[in-house]
Structures are given as C-alpha cells and as structure tokens.
C-alpha cells in the first residue's frame, strides 16, 4: 500500500520535531520500565520454568533464576511427534501464504487498475466477506469438507484460507496509486497484462506483499480452532493443535509444558524480531481506513 511508508515515517518525523527539547522526565523511564516488565515478564517466566527441575518449580518462594535443566527439553521433545507438527505447519502456512499472495495480487490488480461493469458492487461484496466470522462457518464448512472427503487433510487447512480480504484491499490500494504511464509504456512495448503484472508491478508491490505474507504466515502458524475441528490425526495437524493435545495429556507437567511452549513459539518470535518493521507497518496498514 502506497500510504504505508508515509505512515511509518510519520512518528519518526514527529520524534525529530520533539528532539529539540532534551528533557526526558524520570517518569518516562519509569513508565517504560513498568511496561516492558509487564509485557515481557511472562516470556521470561516460561523460560525460567522450562529450565528448572519439576521440584524446583513447585518451591515457595518461587525461583526467579533458571538452573539449566535442559533435560526438560529432551523429555518434552520426545513425548510428542513435534517434528511432524513442525513440518505440517510449515507446509500449511507456506502454501496458504503463497495462495493468498497469488489471489490477492490478481484481484487487487483487477480492482485497482482495470475498468469493468459491476466493479464497485463486486468490491463492496468482497469487503462484506469480512462480516462473516469463522466461528459461524464451522458447522456448514465441516459438513462441506466431510462430504468432499477433505476432513483430516492438508487441503482443509489451506484452500479455505487461500483468499484474504485484507490482502486484496492492501494491493488494490497499491495499484490505485500505481503510475498509469508505466502501464501504458509497457503496453506500447508490447508487454501483455500478465507479463506487466509479473515483471513490473509485482517487484514494485514487494513491501505490501511482504506485509501480507507475514500476517498470513503467522495467522496460519497460530491457527487453532479450525484445524482442531477439521483434523483428527497428528499426521496432518499443525503445531498449535499438537500443543493443545500435549496440554491435555501432560497438563500438570509444568516444566515439560513450558519447554514445549518455548520451542513451539520460538520460530514465531524469531520471525517477529527479524521483520518487526514490516509487522508494525502491517498494523498501521490495517488502520488505512482511519488515516483519512
């Protein structure tokens, strides 16, 4: 989306304006420290719990430092088919992301660059899809997937999520502000629409595509209710369903559970830290609507 970079640079510009006055009252530091403590402490706590022995975590007063019981990780890792869950999740999240990128690029291109009868109505219809929550669709989609023999398959977890209103909206915004001259020049050079989309527009849409890909990938990684209902065997289940199963069977093994939480969440956190800028840009883009 074109407005994305401008939105993200705004706070920085404001910060530059503010910097004229060099006073940072003590309470800013204090509030900042409290916020960091409140929001990050659970992460620290689960790591500490995962590295102490089962007896140590039941001590009172609680131990606030880890005692490096790596054995917890070994035990948790061997207690469930985690590798299988990881592979399933990567496959499902990867394919879903790819599918969303393709469908969003095509539809966003049509809505943003082409003129055709019924365009406004169709676009409004696409936006209206957002009104239908997944919870409401569980029953009919379960029956549908059962009748086409897709229950307990990868496809049941990929295809229904292969199109995204957020993705289409973001790419439409991108194409609306796309320089028309570029497209005309490409047409004069004899490039087909398809080639234009693939070779010229797509590289330029990269920031928007990356934002969409990150959110779809994380959403797919974090999915729970849908795969929990639509699948029954670990051979196709994603990581969060595996973790919920592990919680069901090892509900009081706090050290093992904590270890499992750490190693199943680590990939998401690494992705988030590496691409934090794009994640924040995506959150800003979601408010494209209120920016005006």
């Amino acid at each position: 989306m074109s407005s994305e970079p401008t939105v993200t640079t705004q706070p920085r510009r404001m910060a530059a304006l503010h910097r004229r006055r060099h006073h940072w009252p003590w309470w800013h530091w204090f509030v900042g420290a409290i916020l960091v403590l409140l929001f990050l402490f659970p992460f620290y706590w689960v790591i500490v719990t995962s590295l102490n022995s089962p007896n140590q975590v039941l001590q009172f007063p609680p131990l606030f430092l880890p005692h490096w019981q790596w054995i917890n990780y070994v035990q948790a890792w061997t207690a469930a088919p985690w590798l299988r869950y990881f592979a399933n999740t990567l496959f499902i999240a990867g394919l879903t992301t790819l599918l969303v990128l393709v469908t969003s690029l095509l539809a966003g291109f049509a809505f943003g660059m082409m003129e055709f009868p019924g365009k406004q109505i169709l676009f409004a219809g696409f936006l209206a899809i957002m009104m239908i929550p997944t919870t409401v669709l569980l029953i009919p989609d379960y029956i549908l997937l059962r009748d086409i023999h897709w229950l307990n398959t990868y496809w049941a977890q990929i295809v229904p999520f292969g199109a995204s209103v957020f993705g289409i909206f973001l790419l439409r915004q991108f194409f609306l502000s796309f320089p028309r001259e570029l497209m005309e020049a490409a047409a004069l050079d004899g490039a087909s629409q398809g080639r234009f989309l693939w070779q010229i527009a797509m590289p330029m849409a990269k920031p928007a595509l990356i934002t969409i890909a990150l959110y779809v990938f994380i959403g797919s990684w974090n999915a729970f209710l849908w795969p929990y209902i639509m699948t029954s065997s670990p051979s196709v289940q994603p990581i969060e369903v595996g973790l919920a199963t592990f919680l069901g069977t090892n509900g009081t093994d706090w050290t093992g559970l904590s270890a499992a939480v750490v190693f199943t969440t680590l990939p998401v956190m690494i992705l988030f830290l590496v691409a934090q800028r794009q994640f924040l840009a995506g959150a800003y883009a979601a408010t494209g609507s209120v920016k005006g």
Binding site: L35, L40, P42, N222, F224, E240, L257, V261
Partner: peptide
C-alpha cells in the same frame, strides 16, 4: 515489547498464564 504478545500463538501463551 508491548506489541510482541500480539504475534504469539494463543494456545502457547495461554499455557504460560495458566501456570502463572
């Protein structure tokens, strides 16, 4: 820090809070 919990899976981080 404030934003980071938002990207975590609910199953995983709710387990942390069950323990807390």
């Amino acid at each position: 820090s404030v934003f980071s919990p938002y990207v975590t899976p609910v199953v995983a981080t709710s387990i942390v809070w069950i323990w807390i």
